[in-house]
Design a protein around this nucleic acid. Sequence first.
DNA 1: GCTTGACCTGGAGCGCACTCCAGGTTGGAG
DNA 2: CTCCAACCTGGAGTGCGCTCCAGGTCAAGC
Lengths: 124, 124
Amino acid sequence: MTGYAPSEAARRSGFSLDTLRYYEKIGLLADVGRTSGGQRVFTDDDLGWLVLFRCLRDTGMPIAQMCRYAQLAREGEHTADERRELLERHAVRVEEQMLLLQRQYDHLREKIRFYEQLPGSGSA
Amino acid sequence: MTGYAPSEAARRSGFSLDTLRYYEKIGLLADVGRTSGGQRVFTDDDLGWLVLFRCLRDTGMPIAQMCRYAQLAREGEHTADERRELLERHAVRVEEQMLLLQRQYDHLREKIRFYEQLPGSGSA
DNA sequence: GCTTGACCTGGAGCGCACTCCAGGTTGGAG
DNA sequence: CTCCAACCTGGAGTGCGCTCCAGGTCAAGC
């Protein structure tokens, strides 16, 4: 049960201090420990959550949906199915996103090739 | 030189009418034709630009950068190199984005597999 | 000629996800 | 004991990219 100072948690998760506080304020990150003086102490478990949030944010999940996921997890084991489904649906959206990104990347590369082969055309 | 009504341009480009007007207002789309009565008429050339903007937006280019690109194109052939470089740098960022997305997608799939194999654990 | 749906303008408003701030507290190093 | 960097709070502000609105105009079909 190692404890991490806010700055350390920020460093490890890649979120800013303000973002960590914000995530706690909106209830995404719950029950973060405190010192007697009121300063936050993040556990390995908190860090695990942050790594998950990093993954979900990087793949474009809205914060509201992450809140829902976290809420379900807090409610206990019986929500495991719903949580899995939520992640599965998200994964499908990510697949679509990846396909679109690949398609548009190909367009972009084609456009660049056009510049390389026919330099100087002013049209779009 | 076919002309398209705003609603048709919106349908073909996937941008909303408001977005088309917005793009014109900020100078991203310039010199859009008008009827004698003041209603917009989009040309195939305009549509070509919109398709490019769609590509750049879908790959995450900020609007300010698209404006810069469009501005350069308007300045003439001598900016072709700069335009190509701008697109190239963007393409590199897109590649990084695709790698990150793939990595985080893999994490997500791993997480889902975990739910499928060990249903019911409450931790993150 | 009249109707009606598509279009026009300038400007305000929105949703998201932070980010910053002022003014005060904490706690480890020396 | 003192110092100062790191931390705390509530709340305001920011940046982006649209999106919506009111109040009016246009133009194609009947």
